[in-house]
């Protein structure tokens, strides 16, 4: 029994399906060959597309750093802010226009080192924003200095003999500060990451997603880790365990690194409470 002949279906006008969301005049972007930020950015754009929400109802904010360039490459309302202050700008946008879906796309150094205070307070207030943290374990853009997420013993340009400090456990920090949606994926788990970002955009309240990403130049070169080695680690040394205890989520690639969705709870968010108490809005 013969099968019918196949014919190619070409998408109507766009050569690449995401070209309507990307400022193509800025491409190629600055991210190095093997950097995972581009993959996480693609996952974020795909998730935004999948939600079906009008692009005019989105705003993207990012701080300084490699991943901070994300706001410059997206073809919707976006804001490239000062170092560490992505969340305060996002809070401002959300309070001025509560119907906007605000996405913060930034790096670990920006969100947790210089902007750490803003993060915990936005989580405490339960601001209705989505925070995507590209965690590459290092300050990539400034030359590979040790960051608040650099693993213990890892080499960086400021810790040539190994990092004496211990890194933050970011999902635990977000959970303890009061985030209502917390997940962690790697750039290799693109589908789960995309679904998770879509879920986080639709989630009412402070959503935090940590996405692990290789930095082949400033982290990988000093720690003898080629980009494909990092991806192999993400493939072999991770397990998916939803609703895991946030206390056991420390990243140590000698043991298994736990991925998944850890927190998903409903709580009244800040713009609702503010509107109810000060602007006389009713929660219907």
């Amino acid at each position: 029994m013969g099968k019918p002949a196949l014919k190619e279906v070409i998408p109507e006008s766009h050569p690449h399906p995401l070209e309507d969301l990307v400022r193509m005049d800025r491409i190629p972007h600055i991210w190095c060959s093997g950097c995972g930020t581009g993959s996480i950015f693609t996952a974020c754009l795909t998730a935004m597309k999948n939600t079906g929400i009008d692009y005019n109802d989105f705003a993207m904010v990012s701080g300084i750093g490699c991943s901070g360039r994300g706001a410059g490459y997206i073809n919707i309302d976006s804001f490239h802010t000062t170092h560490g202050r992505a969340i305060p700008f996002a809070t401002g946008i959300k309070m001025a226009k509560p119907e906007t879906n605000v996405i913060v796309f930034s790096g670990d150094g920006d969100l947790f080192a210089i902007g750490g205070n803003h993060f915990i307070h936005a989580a405490r207030r339960n601001m209705d924003i989505t925070v995507i943290c590209v965690n590459n374990f290092i300050y990539g853009m400034t030359g590979g200095q040790a960051a608040a997420t650099t693993p213990h013993n890892a080499r960086s340009s400021t810790t040539m003999g190994g990092n004496p400090e211990s890194p933050f456990n970011l999902p635990l920090l977000a959970y303890a500060a009061g985030a209502t949606y917390v997940a962690r994926w790697t750039m290799l788990h693109s589908r789960d990451l995309t679904d998770s970002i879509e879920e986080a955009i639709n989630h009412k309240g402070f959503s935090f997603i940590e996405a692990l990403s290789p930095c082949p130049i400033n982290y990988g070169r000093r720690n003898k880790e080629k980009p494909l080695d990092s991806l192999k680690l993400y493939h072999d040394r991770t397990i998916i365990k939803n609703n895991a205890d946030p206390g056991e989520l420390a990243i140590d690639f000698r043991k298994k690194v736990i991925l998944g969705k850890f927190v998903d709870v409903e709580k009244p968010c800040h713009d609702e409470e503010y509107g109810r108490m000060y602007l006389g809005e009713t929660n219907e």
Binding site: E19, T37, S190
Partner: peptide, 18 residues
Amino acid sequence: ELLCPEFAIFSTELVAET
């Protein structure tokens, strides 16, 4: 398409002509 950091690869479907 989802993994490429450069927006440089994508795929389209082949459907049966009938």
